[in-house]
Nucleic acid binder design. Sequence first.
DNA 1: CGAGCTTTGTGAACGTGTGCACGAATGCAT
DNA 2: ATGCATTCGTGCACACGTTCACAAAGCTCG
Lengths: 231, 231
Amino acid sequence: MPTERPRRRIPEATVARLPVYLRILVEQAEEEVECVSSDRLAELAGVNAAKVRKDLSYLGSYGTRGVGYEVAYLVYQIRRELGLTHDWPVVIVGAGNLGQALAGYGGFGERGFPVAGIVDVDPAKVGSVLGGVRVRHIDELSQIVQAKRVNIGVIATPTVSAQDAAERLVAAGVTSILNFAPVVLSVPRSIEVRKVDLAVELQILSYHEQRRSGGSIRAVGNAATQRSASA
Amino acid sequence: MPTERPRRRIPEATVARLPVYLRILVEQAEEEVECVSSDRLAELAGVNAAKVRKDLSYLGSYGTRGVGYEVAYLVYQIRRELGLTHDWPVVIVGAGNLGQALAGYGGFGERGFPVAGIVDVDPAKVGSVLGGVRVRHIDELSQIVQAKRVNIGVIATPTVSAQDAAERLVAAGVTSILNFAPVVLSVPRSIEVRKVDLAVELQILSYHEQRRSGGSIRAVGNAATQRSASA
DNA sequence: CGAGCTTTGTGAACGTGTGCACGAATGCAT
DNA sequence: ATGCATTCGTGCACACGTTCACAAAGCTCG
């Protein structure tokens, strides 16, 4: 039972793809598939087969030439590399529209990120229950983070409160933040921040639509693989 | 009043940053700021100043040396390049938790992406009103897309229905898709797909947390700028 | 056991993105 | 007018990411 620490640093682009491979592999395992080739996995993930092999090679040489990769073992290895061998409780800041949707969306806990708490500044929201978790006041944030050993915070507040939320999260001891508010957060360099911005995504689509219609000479060319969040 | 078509192709990485600059510039304009330097803009956007200049240079030479960029004019140019000179109505497929949150989140229409319709397969959901828009049956999708000239579809269905939703959207004539379901959609190459995947984002954060704690030799190092959705 | 087929793992070439460093242009003060 | 401080625009070098192409390794079958 190998438990060695990750040897080499894994490229950010690869880290962003590993979760996709993982999901596909888990699905394959559920369908009793025991072995996949890089070709098959590439097809399912919508990427190039060489890329799959190179990505997986960063984990070590876990494939068998002429055969492919053993699904169960690969699932184990990717889980280990991504730190998914144990749960990562998250705390959600903001119990508005989005916070409610996030809490209500069960898939959170199932995937190893149980909601350890939801907080809001608005006393009127405190006490209500969302997805089985009671909303508490934001002043209790530190206590929740400490008690439940939370490392990851989710910002689901209105834009204007997001920076404040970030500072409170950092002060409470959170070291990773997933930010849904359309602002660039200012936090210490040691804090890992990822952003999900609806408007940005739509505007990128708008750019391509605009090129398509008003397009000068050409437009398409590649199109190809679907873009996703990453570095 | 220049209305020429985009000359050069803009790098994807730049396209992903333009919306961020745009938002900041609009905020600056609201604060009566008339002129910004690349340094200032870089600071607000959390990126390198040289990068800002290079990004903006793809739009043309709209800065004034020794002075900076005129906010209003830059806003106009970025809007034009991103195709934001007119609205892009969107249609949302799926009136569940997420679909409701999206429809309820007013910021959609404000930012130039009015919700032209919401559809669902479940007849029980049809008829209810979300964010001022009545939920209609998915069989009416084509009709909505045609009538409202919708180019962009948003998939907010459960995972299993996402591929079906994608196919219906494409059949209806939509050419860009924003997908919230954790699946790799299979669509014609000409369709532009962008993905927003909660679980992937959290798992990337998990990776970094895991490195941080169990980290072998090194861990931090860069951290730095916050990653976001892009190519 | 060896031939032939399959599939991995990776070196090398290529393409894209980033950041420095500096010339060129502009504004301002004297 | 001239000089000085500022800031843009961009050439260049480097880092990162992608893809090709092929040797090495394993399986199957006769």
